[in-house]
Design a protein around this nucleic acid. Sequence first.
RNA 1: AGGCCCGUAGCUCAGUUGGAAGAGCGUCCGACUCCAAAUCGGAAGGCCGGGGGUUCGAGCCCUCCCGGGCCUGCCA
Length: 334
Amino acid sequence: MITRVFSGIQPTGTLHIGNYFGAVRNWAAMQDDIESIICIVDYHAITIDVDPTTLRQATLSMATDLIACGIDPEKTVLFVQSDVPEHTELGWILGCVTSIGDLSRMTQFKDKSSKQSFISSGLFTYPVLQAADILLYKADGVPVGEDQIQHLELSRRIARRFNSRFGEFFPEPQQVVGEKGARIMSLSDPTAKMSKSAGETHYVGVMEPETSIRKKVRSAVTDMGLESGDAMSPGVANLFEILELSTESTGQTDILENLRANFAVGSLMYSTLKDAVFEQLMEILRPIQEKRAKLESSGDVIDMLRSGAKRARIMAKETIAQVRPLVGLGTDNP
RNA sequence: AGGCCCGUAGCUCAGUUGGAAGAGCGUCCGACUCCAAAUCGGAAGGCCGGGGGUUCGAGCCCUCCCGGGCCUGCCA
């Protein structure tokens, strides 16, 4: 039985619909039923070279996006990682029960480091900090996608090793699978997951202007036309996926069914599909964008983050206060 | 601490003896397409890492600095 879930998200500046349908929407749905902690992980963000001003803005912007998308800072403990410095202390301690061998097997490190000329040691030990993020709150559930499973497994391994060395203390966090494992693909390259780093044409930003979204959806890769009975090409399947996720919320599932039927008999015009995707997507995004505008002009987000950090820190301090004597650190413990 | 290599467009790089800064990919616009892709046509994009010097003239030579990579050594 999962009792507390932890989610982290990097302050990349803005959310795209892959983040929204894949993660954020599930978080928002979950917060009513289960104790939820969401952390904007700025310590993680600095593992690669990033401009300080950009980072600060991106962090605030990400928080605003999340709240606009339905994360309720009253229900969910929403905060910025570096406002709770206990993350780094636990990170250090856990780093000392983590082997270099385990870390060097992380595919994400190999991936990211191959794209950097300057490879920081922080990038290498990133998964340790991630384990600390989760374990600091003794979260037993982590809603992660497939790409993070390896890191989550390492977190469990780290928890296990800590427990066996210092005594049973941390729960081993389990993967929480969302109701719908949405995995939105890039519009320009539908064989790759949607990501911001791949370039402008690859993603649709949740907060993007309507004209820009229409253009991007219309430019999505499809195929050269299929015979009826053929399987969908990746690009078309992706558009249907986005349409399905959107109509789930708008309730206009008949649109989806019609287009599916058209596809089945081979009479679907992709421009029609794209128009529908755009329309339904905007139904979802419009209210989110409006909410964001209000939030931004209110200037309340900073205060929300501060009070979130206060709540998080109470939990974090308690954990650290227990960990230190277990390990034998400090003078203020017997 | 010593030695070697590197820094030019968003990315990967070329650049002749020192003589008008280039290519490929990507991006943007157009044609084609139901929409896209591919293809074709067009365009934008540069403090040549930074300062100083030599020269009529420096991406290129000298010098210092910054940044990155590799090798050796030293200390803990």
